[in-house]
């Protein structure tokens, strides 16, 4: 690992991201749009365990935002590869692991920025924060974003052309999102849905965040924490392996 190299990769991501206005605009508008339409719209008629629906899905929207931004940020790598940007980085003496970590840091930073915007919006729908809850939420966001960015980078390093981008939404993002309990409670699900949901690491991230945001949880905190951290660690390891094998 080479710290100055990791910093260079991260800095490059920051500079380019904040110069791409459309990316920032859609990153901010998207989650707010979801909250307003889905949450407030359905929330007018539905409440779950005494909690407003928009408050209930708040954790889900937060995770959805991190999910989209991290996976797409990582998979964007395929574009870097196609236009020779990445090649120039790969011929430097930086190790693949360092390049990978620099990219993950970039993905995490974006997610933290987006999460902060959404969390601020939480005040509008009466979410109560304490210093403890907000720090725990941010730490969870960082770990989850690291894992998801690693998944995205692994996908980006395996893809050969940007044409496969639609497939990522269909086969990675949507199943992970809809089977995570982000939009509905896990009690009373048909058995096949229960199995799929329990197998999805995102479920535990949603559950952990929901317990911190509105005090509702399905699994124990220990289960949630262990699975969230293990997911991030395993995803990072697999991502580094995929990066090592990547052809320029």
């Amino acid at each position: 690992m080479n710290l100055s190299g990791i910093r260079a990769i991260w800095q490059r991501e920051m500079l380019t991201f904040f110069r791409e206005k459309p990316r920032i605009v859609s990153a901010v508008i998207n989650p707010i749009f979801w909250l307003l339409t889905f949450g407030v719209g359905l929330g007018a008629t539905v409440d779950i365990e005494g909690i407003n629906y928009e408050q209930y899905i708040f954790a889900g929207i937060l995770v959805q935002t991190i999910l989209f931004s991290s996976i797409f940020y990582g998979a964007y790598l395929v574009w870097d590869r196609r236009i020779d940007l990445l090649k120039a980085v790969l011929v430097t003496p930086l190790s693949r692991a360092s390049i990978f970590m620099g990219k993950v840091l970039g993905g995490v930073t974006f997610s933290v920025v987006e999460a902060a915007i959404i969390l601020a919006f939480g005040v509008v729908i009466n979410i109560h924060y304490t210093l403890y809850s907000i720090s725990m939420i941010m730490i969870t966001v960082v770990i989850a974003a690291a894992g998801l960015t690693a998944v995205g980078l692994a996908i980006g390093s395996l893809m050969t052309s940007p044409e496969g981008f639609q497939l990522i939404t269909t086969f990675v993002i949507f199943p992970l999102f809809f089977l995570s309990g982000a939009l509905f409670p896990l009690e009373n699900l048909p058995p096949y849905l229960t199995v799929l949901t329990i197998a999805n690491p995102l479920t535990y991230i949603v559950d952990l965040l929901r317990s911190l945001l509105v005090g509702l949880q399905y699994f124990s905190t220990l289960e949630n924490v262990v699975i969230t951290i293990s997911f991030a660690a395993i995803a990072t390891l697999l991502g580094i392996l995929a990066f090592r094998r990547m052809r320029a």
């Binding site: 800095q11 020779d84 940007l85 120039a88 980085v89 430097t92």
Partner: peptide, 26 residues
């Protein structure tokens, strides 16, 4: 190495491009 295709970052300035690579070379 200089590749056939352009490999500089369009959204960075000339100086930033060079500085970041200098960092990568340690």
């Amino acid at each position: 190495i200089i590749f056939q295709e352009p490999s500089s970052d369009e959204l960075l300035t000339g100086y930033e491009n060079i500085k970041l690579y200098a960092m990568m070379y340690g």
